[in-house]
Nucleic acid binder design. Structure first.
Lengths: 228, 228
DNA sequence: CGATTGCCGACTGTCGACAGCTTCGATTAC
DNA sequence: GTAATCGAAGCTGTCGACAGTCGGCAATCG
């Protein structure tokens, strides 16, 4: 994460692959709703706009396809992923599956250090809850959940979570808002922390089910309002 | 491998993308132990051997990287994924997570049709258990588990399972053998079916835990023998 | 004799170009 | 007026080529 390059970030960016830069640009553009869901993306036009050739664009598009932000049709090109309510339900169901497992593993090896770091993150989220941008709130929320998965000790589980993270950002962006109540976000996460601190697996599972259930219902309802 | 036209010589080869064909070839080569774990793959050499240009090779390699069969280092190229015991444990732990969830969802909506199709598949596995090739046994086993996930109704869960399927094939191929006892494979799967038919979620969970646990212990033990 | 430096070969990252396919609008037949 | 047809434009799939970079080897210096 921290750049081991003592020179600075400017050279680091210069040395980065064009593929990654294009992928970042496309990711931000899709999350930022610069493209409509289902819209077709032209490789040549993207290459022209970004001042690069088609090769990096193609590879970046393939990368985003594997992340679920784009879908490709042979001989037709890439399209922005369009999510319906059913797919949204599936994504949150998978997230529930992963986070249940992570919590169950984490509660077996919970310690003071992990508790403190999670507590600090929740406090960051509380500070951000009112005032900062929506995307900032989302990112800090994802950081917390990623920490939980990471602390569970299973790196492959973390990769699976990172995979659906991109789709989560997409569908959260689609409904254009996060939590209705800025307080609910903090209380809900304190609940998760308390469950972990109690050491009770059943309580952890209940806390996760409640937390993910609320988020899913909110997003699915938001999608229903957006595109009925 | 073959010097020229290793992928295919018919005229209809153009109907499928070269990327997919190269990806299939590379997948079979990696699963078939034609490349050593950690071995570096040269794009130009692969392109020469397959009689195509580097572009399809690069895109296929990126695809296999997303599937966990290759890893890439910037400016250095692609390397065959090498799995250690810890990663193997993580993979089977994630598989346990996914299959537990699928079984829990499936037992809620289990019906006679699904039961019959799963039963037929287990019978196929029993027929194949003694005599056919190892890869055939593995594939039929994966078909059964994929059916369970598929019947659960969550397509995103199925995609997550397909993602780790490639890694499962890799690590199973690494140890070079499947189940020690050809009978254990059938009894273990009948146990899963009976648990589903009983409609008891707790019994389903126990059956999955036992099934995946046996498979994990066997593979992890096999890896320990292969590369201690 | 060990460490450093310069060089060489090979490789990856990127580019522009061509062929075949897809799409969409104009045209024509009914 | 409608529907099918045809053609042009744009697109993707694929290719060969060039430049910058990395790793290894040898020559040089302490």
């Amino acid at each position: 994460m921290s750049s081991s390059n003592a020179i600075g970030d400017s050279t680091f960016i210069q040395q980065r692959n064009l593929v990654e830069q294009v992928a970042d640009y496309l990711t931000q553009a899709i999350i930022g709703q610069k493209f409509a869901p289902g819209e077709r993306l032209s490789e040549v036009q993207l290459a022209r706009d970004l001042g690069v050739s088609r090769a990096p664009v193609r590879e970046a598009a393939r990368l985003l396809e594997s992340r679920g932000l784009l879908v490709s049709q042979p001989r037709r090109g890439f399209f922005v992923r369009a999510l319906d309510a059913a797919e949204l339900n599936d994504i949150f169901d998978l997230r529930l599956c992963l986070e249940r497992h992570a919590m169950a593993r984490l509660v077996e090896n919970f310690d003071a250090d992990k508790e403190e770091r999670l507590r600090n993150q929740v406090e960051v989220m509380c500070e951000v809850a009112s005032g900062d941008s929506e995307s900032r709130k989302i990112e800090e929320d994802l950081v917390f959940h990623r920490m939980v998965i990471s602390f569970s000790g299973n790196r492959r589980l973390l990769k699976a979570f990172d995979d659906i993270t991109h789709e989560l950002r997409l569908c959260i962006a689609l409904i254009g808002k996060t939590h209705a109540d800025p307080d609910s976000i903090s209380t809900s996460h304190w609940l998760l922390l308390d469950a972990l601190a109690s050491g009770d697996p059943e309580r952890c599972r209940e806390a996760v089910d409640y937390h993910i259930g609320v988020a899913r219902d909110y997003v699915v309802q938001g999608i229903g309002e957006t595109a009925p």
